[in-house]
Simulated scan of single mutants.
Amino acid sequence: MRIAALFTVLLYSFIASSEQLDVVVGWDKPPYVMSADHSGFELELTRAILKELGHELSPIYVPFGRTARLLKDDAVDIALTLNKAHKVSADILSDPYVVYQNVAVTREDRNIKVNGLASLRGKSIIAFQTAKNVLGKEYGNTLASQPNYLEMARQDRQVNMLMLGSVDAVIMDRNIFSYFKAQNDAYADDAVTIHELFPVSAYCAGIPNPKLRAQFNATLKKFFEDGRYQALLTRFRLENLFDKLVEQQLHINES
Rank of each mutant, 00 (worst) to 15 (best):
I3H: 10
A4Q: 10
L6R: 11
I15D: 09
I15N: 11
A16C: 11
S18V: 02
Q20V: 15
L21D: 07
D22A: 13
G26I: 12
G26H: 11
W27E: 14
D28M: 10
K29N: 14
K29F: 12
Y32S: 02
V33N: 03
H38E: 15
F41L: 11
E44P: 01
T46R: 08
T46I: 12
T46Y: 09
L50N: 00
K51H: 13
E52P: 04
G54E: 06
L57Q: 08
Y61S: 08
P63V: 05
L70K: 01
V76L: 07
L80G: 02
T81L: 15
L82G: 04
N83L: 00
K84F: 09
K87T: 07
L93A: 06
S94F: 06
P96C: 08
Y97T: 03
V105F: 11
R107F: 01
E108F: 07
L117V: 06
S119N: 14
L120I: 01
G122P: 05
S124Q: 04
S124R: 05
A127R: 00
F128P: 03
L135T: 05
G136E: 06
E138Y: 00
G140K: 09
G140W: 06
L143Q: 01
N148Q: 12
A153C: 03
R154V: 13
D156K: 01
Q158K: 02
N160E: 14
V170C: 00
I171Y: 01
M172T: 13
D185C: 00
D189Q: 15
D189V: 09
V192N: 04
Y203N: 10
G206M: 03
P210G: 03
N217Y: 03
K221S: 13
D226R: 00
Y229E: 04
L238K: 02
F242G: 01
K244Q: 13
H251R: 15
S255R: 12
